[in-house]
């Protein structure tokens, strides 16, 4: 029985782990002399992917509900700026709360426009992305805002627990909460039902408008947490933080085996998807390639991986 079941496991559903393994081994051999396998480098990969992981976990819910959120990068940047300014002028707690408030405000606006007004999330969040980045640039006049509050920096990103980077705690927490919520709670089932077949979900008594609102809200609030993590790790708020992260997060989710059409979501897959994206970034940097070539190769690898991972 067990063996028969094992055989039935879809090749595609485990693909992300194979891809991760293959690329990891390839880099281990090719980049051995560049220090790829050194524990410092490996921890670095985890640290650098933490923000993407956190956002990608929330993105898994959005995509499972058959929506998309392109504004998360902008929300992260705006949050880092607002938090930095508030920490400087008013203090730690005000900084954190103001940062999270950005997520609430943008998320509520996205959610209302998508769920109530009925505008496709693609358009809403594409526009919102510009609004958020623009605001962040406007209030800081394009200048970075340094954060001198050590407590803030320690909590969000720069701190360690023993030798263990604090950022890892954030990404593990996000993965665990995300996994439990998606697989073990009624909310997770409602999200998947809404994304799987909105009509049927509505016939089943699921308030699909509420679900769509909630996933958009969660995505923005989590993006604002990611913004705080940027601010803490880099000890600055800057409008550019998070730029382009929406694409990395979406790539991580799809690589992880979540269907772009909604109705199925895999949090653990997303985690490995995010790690894979981070791994590729790290490897290309270690290989000493110029940024332009990094971008080309990263883009091609992601297209190839998604092409292999897609369900239909």
């Amino acid at each position: 029985m067990k063996i028969a079941n094992l055989k039935k496991i879809d090749f595609r559903s485990t693909l992300i782990y194979w891809m991760f393994l293959v690329i990891f081994l390839a880099f281990s051999v090719i980049l051995h002399d560049d220090g790829f396998l050194q524990s410092n480098n490996l921890l670095n990969i985890l640290r650098q992917t933490a923000t993407i992981t956190v956002m990608a976990v929330a993105m898994t819910f959005v995509i499972s509900a058959a929506e998309i959120d392109l504004s998360i990068g902008g929300v992260a940047g705006l949050t880092s700026v607002v938090a930095a300014l508030m920490v400087r002028d008013h203090g730690l707690v005000q900084g954190i709360l103001a940062g999270l408030a950005i997520g609430f405000i943008v998320g509520s606006a996205n959610g209302l426009l998508v769920a109530r007004v009925g505008i496709p999330s693609f358009l809403v969040t594409l526009g919102m992305q510009g609004v958020a980045v623009g605001f962040a640039a406007l209030v800081t006049n394009y200048y970075p805002v340094p954060i001198l509050n050590d407590t803030f920096n320690r909590i969000f990103g720069s701190g360690t627990i023993g030798k263990f980077p604090g950022l890892l705690l954030w990404s593990f927490t996000a993965v665990i909460i995300g996994w439990v919520t998606l697989t073990k709670t009624t909310f997770g089932r409602r999200v998947l039902a809404t994304g799987g077949n909105r009509d049927a979900a509505e016939f089943n008594g699921i308030n699909t408008k509420n679900i769509k609102f909630q996933v958009m809200l969660i995505s923005s609030v989590v993006a604002s947490i990611a913004g705080l993590l940027y601010a803490g790790r880099l000890q600055t708020g800057r409008y550019e933080w998070g730029a382009g992260d929406e694409l990395s997060a979406i790539a991580a989710v799809i690589l992880g085996g979540t269907s772009l059409f909604g109705g199925s979501g895999r949090i653990i897959g997303t985690f490995f998807g995010a790690l894979l994206v981070g791994l590729i970034n790290n490897g290309l940097i270690l290989a000493g390639l110029p940024v332009s070539q990094q971008q080309i190769i990263r883009g091609l690898i992601i297209i190839l991986a998604v092409a292999l991972a897609r369900k239909k």
């Binding site: 009624t186 998947l192 039902a193 799987g196 077949n197 009509d199």
Partner: peptide, 24 residues
Amino acid sequence: RRQGLIMEHTVKHNILSTNLSSLS
């Protein structure tokens, strides 16, 4: 197909979808 079921979900999850509050 369009209104009654979520075709890509399992039997278990389809039965669960109308009974979420009583089964949690």
